[in-house]
Amino acid sequence: MNWDWSNVEDFMPHFWDGLLVTLQALAWGTLIAFSLGLLWAIAQRSDQVWIRWPVTAITEFIRNTPLLVQLFFLFTVVPEFGPTMSPLTTGIVGLGLHYSTYTAEVYRAGIEGVPVGQWEAATALSLPKRRTWTAIILPQAIRRVIPALGNYVVSMLKDSPQIAAIGALDMLGEAKGFTQATFTYEAISIVGIAFIVIAYPASVLLRVLERRLVR
């Protein structure tokens, strides 16, 4: 087999479309996963059983079922009784929701890692609950879990091609279509390289953050 630049040229417009989908899914998915995960983690520490228990049940359920099943569920079952979303939006919600159950565990570990003396000092100063969370506990907890959270961004990038199954053609989805139509291998090679080009700098950045934040 010989590398044929004309195949590359033909594929590139599809590649840019796919890249845009991948990056959108990753950016919005991360935003959802990071904020929703924090919400789960705080809810799981509520003193109200009726908050704690359902949240634990839902997050356990999502974490222990495949992302692909959840994507199909969101795309085909949810519209029966809820909102109908475009493939890309569904993919973003699916990725974000799925990964929020993992980031929740990361936040939980970070929150539990804050010494109990910090809560006690906040009580001794009569600081309200909300202020204790926002000014004392979370800044300390999040700082030490940023590297662990970052790992899930890389994981999410690698899981993002699954959204092609519901029709949101990410870069791998585009490459697959192109390859099956032309029986060439350039497209899939380019996408492979693109994953490394996105993921590797992210990993490096994470290591830098880790050195700076976790002391």
Binding site: P115, G117, Q118, A121, A124, L125, P128, A135, P139, R143
Partner: peptide, 25 residues
């Protein structure tokens, strides 16, 4: 209360450790 392990807030500078509660509470 003053604790055996100090329990200062490590994410705040000395000044803010002292002003946080008087402002908020």
């Amino acid at each position: 209360m003053v604790f055996q392990q100090f329990n200062l807030f490590p994410n705040m500078k000395v000044l803010r450790n002292i002003t946080e509660a008087p402002v908020q509470v």
